[in-house]
Amino acid sequence: MIAFQGTYFDGKSSKAHPVSIICSGGFVSLRDDVNDLKINVKLDDVSLAPPLGKTRRVLELPGGARCETSDLDAVHQLETQQGYQLQRGMHWVHRLESRWLLVIACAACLLLSLWGLMAYGIPQMAKRAAAATPQPLIDTISNQSLALLDKQLFEPSRLDAARTGSLQQQFQDLIRDSGSTVSARLIFRRSPKMGANALALPSGLVIMTDELIYLSRNDRELLGIMAHELAHVEQQHGLRNTYQSAGIFLLISMLLGDVTSMTSTASTLPTLLIETGYSRQFETAADTFAGQYMLQQGWGTKPLRDILQRIAGEKGGAFPAFLSTHPGTEARLQHLEAMEQGTDRP
């Protein structure tokens, strides 16, 4: 016989009846002498709700009635006597909820897993997705991005053809001398709103503003900027950064080759590309590429450092985060100077 105290609810009202519960001879008997309540139910008709930590246990009775008790040991004894077995999933739930240290450990593991997903998992998925993106889709994203920039920030360039032609030829020489295998092209736009700046689109289109050309004091400074933007193209930083921001479901679609999802999402990617800034890791990688190229040419990194300082000192208008989220200028200058001195190796 197993006896314990509990609270009875008839399933018809919220009124609670304190009862004595006796389990014996295949029956469950509930008694409330104050209210003259006497209920006998076959034990086979009683269902035990799975345990949840140290909360009150529930005996579910026929007709929607139920009985709750805080005597966990008595109910456990009843379970053992009846051979009641928890489902595997509920067994783990019960263990978790009855052991706070285990709950804390699981929560810590969950947070660590989320951090790992954000820091390593999603970036790796984005890298693979960028590599798997069809070239026609990359061209579509870039063309739509350029159209949006032309509408919001850019005006036609006022540089003369001789100047632009010379810089474009130097850019092609840069691609050849750096050993890059990407197909890239340099174009120019005027942008009073953005000021002196440059950016690269995923298709290989590198855009320099007239204001940046005017700000430079020699072409080596501009070649340093070009090399930086070429690195973004070659390492697919723009596309990878966009995918990381777009979300894990888009990444899965890309990796699985779901062309329909990729195409339907293409119209939203230009906005993400423009509004999403490069990560510090991507910017450092691009600076490293540019610094290595300039060192190979025997120029040192000073030309790039000089123009970066001048860009930082400009008081331009506000522009989207994509164009202004490079790491702090001081940190970039220190990185480039350390490369020249041989104290900072990639």
Rank of each mutant, 00 (worst) to 15 (best):
G224V: 03
S216A: 15
I213S: 02
P202D: 01
I225E: 02
G63M: 06
L212Y: 04
I104L: 13
R280I: 09
G247F: 10
E234Y: 07
A266K: 06
I141F: 11
D44A: 15
A266L: 13
K302S: 15
T284S: 12
R240T: 11
T7I: 15
R185L: 01
Q152C: 09
K193N: 01
K12C: 09
V34S: 06
A147Q: 14
P202L: 01
F154T: 04
I307Q: 03
I307A: 01
N197G: 04
F27K: 10
L102F: 12
H94E: 14
R128L: 15
D160F: 10
T329F: 01
Q77F: 02
R190I: 00
R185V: 00
P346N: 05
L269D: 01
C106N: 00
A290M: 05
T7V: 15
E340P: 06
L78K: 01
D44H: 05
G53W: 06
T268G: 00
I122Y: 03
H237Q: 11
L336Y: 12
I22G: 09
I252Q: 12
D10W: 11
R310V: 03
M339V: 08
K38W: 07
L61A: 01
L230W: 07
F322S: 10
L112C: 09
R240V: 08
A108I: 15
R158K: 14
M294R: 04
T263D: 14
A231K: 04
R88A: 15
Q281T: 12
C67D: 02
D71R: 04
I213P: 08
S24C: 09
F322V: 04
E211S: 07
N143C: 05
L272W: 07
F27W: 11
G298M: 11
Q172E: 06
A338S: 11
R95T: 10
A16Y: 10
Q172N: 02
L37G: 01
A312S: 15
L304W: 08
L308V: 07
N218E: 02
E275I: 09
V182S: 02
T181Q: 09
G238R: 08
M90N: 11
T288Y: 10
K42W: 08
E229T: 08
H335T: 07
R190K: 07
